[in-house]
Design a protein around this nucleic acid. Structure first.
Lengths: 213, 213
DNA sequence: TCGTTTACTTACGGGCGTTAGCTTACGTCT
DNA sequence: AGACGTAAGCTAACGCCCGTAAGTAAACGA
């Protein structure tokens, strides 16, 4: 099922000061297109407009051009991810092992729930412009900074509680751990069926966090 | 520089039995477009034809449709990868640790040399048709089978030579190791500058292969 | 010479991003 | 209450590139 012709109910116009609401609706429409299983090629300016029930040029009041929509989607999802990780950590209590698995599993689950969103966040094909470094170096690194610091914290707690071997560079270990998670999350997002045992995630986490046996 | 208008020297036609040569040229042209730094969106049927110096419809003598070109590219690169890994292993001698790093580094280097090719192989956006399972389940799993078996072999050698801790499921460990390599390779292929220390690769390999300190 | 292979020219229809100019209704202000 | 400025969104249209179909030319080899 590709074409779901939305019954074109003539959308109610927003109130005076609330024109900005459409911006959120546009982003939501783009995300919806992704979640329907189509890849990013399905997210064109026109298809987003159709999904949102507006005319294509109406988008230009809220976004400079088409890549900017994708950029907004990525930024929103990045925030959601960072928040989810933080919450998972906070709800995990004090036990370092619990915290570690809570955070890592939260990451993997978010990726699994919305594979296409994840692909776009880290698959990087929405590239705005060649010279636009405003996100790939700032925002991605801000998520990088935030999530990786969190991971490093949890790793430190593991070492402090004696359940993991120490290291001279916990941040480096956090990066390695994240790369492992990313490899799994990405592969799951791309292929229909992952090869390998069911407990790959635990293997990855255990090994990369240097957990004691 | 986006448009490199190739001087349209009126290409010499192939001899009688050699019509199939064009097929290789077409694949090469597609790969060339990728290597020029453009992502897969730059590889259209028409752009490939331009790059190959032929007329667009001439492609249909060798490929059923546009996605089939990408599919052929992926298959070719998959073979190259498998070969490269095998050769790296064979040239590494008997020392298990050397073999392990040789194979893993060969993987990472191939990905780094041709980031766009790697992205396409495992980023999966060239998707031919919804129902075409002929590659994603057969070929990808054949590379999976071949490369993963090789990795498992090397891991086994590491255990046998006493430089790595054993495991009850070496194949599972090989999958985990590959996922780590993939995470790093993919991330490198996507972003301009990787965060984290320079020795992430060694950290990943050491941890995921359970090498003894 | 002549059939077959090899490749080309022309053309159609469609989706895309984007620009220019218009309509409608809200909310304010007299 | 009614006029009116302006915000919110639409219609129409442009040019571009795409994938693909149909018919055509040229050269190779028998």
């Amino acid at each position: 099922m590709v074409t779901a012709v939305t019954t074109t109910e003539p959308r109610k116009r927003n109130r005076r000061g609330e024109g900005g609401k459409l911006r959120e609706e546009i982003i939501a429409a783009a995300v919806a297109l992704l979640d329907e299983g189509g890849d990013e090629r399905a997210v064109t300016l026109r298809s987003v407009a159709r999904k949102a029930g507006i005319a294509a040029p109406s988008i230009y009041a809220h976004f400079a051009d088409q890549p900017s929509i994708m950029l907004a989607v990525v930024q929103r999802e990045m925030d959601r991810l960072a928040t989810a990780l933080r919450e998972a950590d906070e709800h995990a209590g004090q036990d370092a092992r619990t915290r570690l698995f809570a955070v890592c599993n939260a990451y993997l689950e978010l990726a699994r729930e919305h594979p296409q969103r994840y692909r776009i966040m880290f698959g990087g094909l929405w590239t705005p412009s060649v010279d636009d470094t405003s996100i790939s170096d700032a925002d991605l690194e801000s998520l990088g900074a935030e999530a990786l610091t969190l991971l490093a914290d949890v790793l430190e707690a593991c070492v402090a509680q004696g359940i993991a071997y120490g290291s001279d560079d916990l941040y480096g270990d956090a990066v390695a751990l994240w790369l492992g998670l990313h490899g799994l999350a990405h592969q799951r997002a791309v292929v229909r069926k992952m090869p390998g045992p069911a407990d790959v995630a635990e293997r990855l986490i255990t090994a990369l966090a240097h957990l004691k046996p």
